[in-house]
């Protein structure tokens, strides 16, 4: 019996490692290819020249102004998207939970809807809207963040929903109101601190999504990082690929960091609290 079981487990282990190996290979090979390509020097030698250029912000701005412009735009877009997303979603979702539980299905449906809308459809639909945005607010790549908020909505909604589920929003809000808190205080001092993890993971997901966005920006002829990279690829492939690799690695790091704040340990919100106990009690 036990021998059989051990054999079965060994088989399972082998299968697991093979699967992991294949997946790693699948992901790692292109990355390796990128790294190899960006470190090619003249005459078959290795050179860190491309990477040195990339790390020198002054040089990048001087030699590749489009890249700098795209990079700054993407960072701005990421920040703005996260801000708009949070301001839009956190109070709405909390309020729906507290006062309009009947609407929760509708809100969920609306927030998940963008998953089913292809980027091109979104762009076609948004074009007339953006004509007005440009007319009213002026020409700026940053207004893309309005479209990006729609894009990140499903992911942000999921994260925040999980966070709200983990606490008894209604009871906490009622307890604090009976103690004399107005709605602002309830939000800032009671609900938000308990949603820290959820807010962080919603933000990380949004940042990762915005930094990797190409289609919508390109279709609107706006220059974000990905579009700049794409255009640069036509003239200077090495630097373009290097930026691509750096963006990918950064994206991984963001998601990796997220798995720490949003991991199963702190999903119960116990871990952050424990950490704080240690800090506060001497």
């Amino acid at each position: 019996m036990s021998g059989n079981r051990a054999a079965a487990r060994r088989k399972q282990d082998v299968f697991r490692w093979v699967t992991i190996g294949v997946c790693l290979l699948f992901f790692a090979l292109p990355l390796y290819g990128m790294l190899e390509f960006t470190t090619r020097g003249p005459g078959g030698t290795r050179s860190a020249q491309t990477w040195a250029t990339l790390l020198d912000f002054g040089k990048v701005s001087a030699e590749y102004p489009a890249l700098k412009e795209g990079f700054l735009a993407s960072v701005g877009l990421a920040v703005l998207t996260v801000l708009i997303m949070l301001v839009l979603l956190v109070p709405t979702m909390t309020w729906v939970r507290l006062r309009l539980p009947g609407l929760s299905r509708t809100v969920e449906f609306l927030c998940l809807l963008p998953l089913t809308v292809p980027a091109i459809v979104l762009v076609v639909g948004l074009t007339p809207v953006y004509a007005w945005v440009t007319y009213l607010l002026g020409e700026s790549t940053l207004w893309l963040s309005l479209a990006y908020v729609i894009l990140v909505l499903p992911y942000a909604y999921r994260s925040l929903d999980a966070g709200l589920r983990a606490i008894d929003v209604k009871t906490l809000a009622e307890a604090s109101r009976s103690l004399g808190a107005g709605w602002g205080t309830v939000m800032m001092r009671v609900i938000l601190p308990n949603l820290r993890t959820a807010v962080l993971s919603a933000s990380f997901l949004s940042v990762a999504l915005v930094l990797g966005e190409f289609t919508i920006a390109n279709l609107f002829s706006r220059k974000n990082l990905q579009v700049a990279m794409y255009e640069l690829g036509k003239s200077d492939a090495q630097i373009s690929i290097a930026v691509g690799l750096a963006a990918l690695v950064f994206g991984f790091l963001v998601l990796f960091a997220m798995s720490f704040v949003g991991g199963p340990r702190s999903a119960t919100a116990a871990a952050p609290r424990l950490r704080r106990t240690r800090k506060e009690s001497p």
Partner: peptide, 10 residues
């Protein structure tokens, strides 16, 4: 005082 879960967890 509520039935349960009313303490601020943080």
């Amino acid at each position: 005082v509520f039935q349960a879960y009313s303490l601020f967890p943080h």
